[in-house]
Design a protein around this nucleic acid. Structure first.
Lengths: 216, 216
DNA sequence: TCCATAACCATATAGTCGTATGGTTTTGAC
DNA sequence: GTCAAAACCATACGACTATATGGTTATGGA
């Protein structure tokens, strides 16, 4: 060995710079040179950590989706698990991902820019699908737990319900982002609340359990 | 005057070429030269009809959204207005816009690519918002008519219901597009059907009326 | 017929950007 | 200390692309 640097941290540092650039000027304004300048390093060093620009963008997309995901899982981890309806925890988690403040709007701006490019680029699409499926799986697990608890009827198919909830949430996010006048965040929250209420129709018979917690 | 050409038709011809290019190679692979080649004309002529590339893309976005919109309004115009529940007409119209076959998938591919860029470009965003609002307004009108008819309860706010329906539909479209395995078209149709059923809870007291038709 | 004008074309130009190249500097191991 | 390898940098290069320029061709009106 010789001189050492935290490879992963450097890559994240670059990805962060790309994210800032996208929210400032848009995805197609991103250049390697600008990225390097924003990250405070040389172009050569960016090349040292990413062989091509595409690889850099791919990693950045990963990075961004991870951040959004983290925000949601963090909230779930923080929430009270005892005596709280799973319905409310799920609602809180979904609300958390809405573009409520400017920071979250910027995050979605970046994510949406990538979504557009993912329509053309299979590798970006792959990243998107993976994130989508994790999201659905998380919701499905919550619904399953809610079924065991009694909040959701036994007849409900957890996967179907989860897929619908996720799609609805994403649609609302898109509309809040594109037209906050026609679809204010509060309206989106209300819509999600009503939809969840139509799924979580029962009373909890057992002690509360976190959405991610496995039944005993 | 002198030599004449149908300005509008030429512009649409170019826009169509751009659309083909996007669905073949993606939005960022579009160049003026390729567009001209695809349209069978010279680069100079493209410049003759569009002062800049941006203007060309803007017009193309318009063109694409118009096509998608047309598909929906055409179906509504074709549908039987007498004795048909407005709920079913709305459902048919929404289903029509799902990426069911390859042609519609391509259309959405193009639209989504632009959506991504609209996150950065205010002028593209403007076009998107306008289309969004027209869509919501159309649905709201259908809900209003359904209220008069008795299919939808009087207490329902048409605008709110319409905004929710539109957001849900768009979310489903996005998921069907991104992950047809996890969200097959049939599942999206079922989800829309169930949602509409939760809005259109009444029986029609009057003769059937088209969603766009004004009450007497 | 003629000519002004719009339709249409081929190519030059200037700028941008991704990547390659050829370095210098730092540092961990011996 | 020294040396090899990695971290890091500045710049050159080649390809691409939007747009400008300077045309030619066709045609409607006089």
């Amino acid at each position: 060995m010789s001189r050492v640097a935290d490879h992963d941290e450097r890559r994240h540092q670059v990805a962060s710079a790309v994210g800032q650039l996208i929210s400032a000027e848009g995805l197609n304004a991103v250049t390697v040179a600008k990225t390097a300048a924003r990250a405070g390093i040389s172009v050569g060093l960016v090349q040292h950590y990413f062989r091509t620009k595409d690889e850099m963008l791919l990693f950045t997309y990963h990075h961004v989706l991870e951040r959004i995901e983290q925000r949601e899982t963090d909230l779930v981890a923080r929430s009270e698990t005892v005596g709280t309806r799973i319905e409310h925890i799920v609602l809180d988690a979904l609300r958390e991902s809405l573009p409520l403040d400017d920071e979250r709007r910027q995050e979605w701006r970046v994510a949406l820019a990538f979504t557009g490019r993912a329509a053309d680029d299979p590798r970006l699409a792959e990243v998107k699908v993976a994130a989508l499926r994790r999201r659905r799986a998380r919701i499905a697990e919550a619904v399953t737990n809610a079924k065991e608890c009694g909040e959701v009827p036994e007849a409900t198919d957890a996967d179907t319900a989860a897929a619908r909830i996720a799609a609805y949430a994403d649609g609302l996010i898109g509309h809040v982002f594109a037209d906050p006048t026609g679809m204010p965040p509060a309206a989106a929250q209300a819509a999600l609340g009503d939809h969840l209420a139509s799924v979580f129709t029962g009373e909890c018979r057992l002690r509360g359990r976190a959405p991610g917690e496995r039944p005993a």
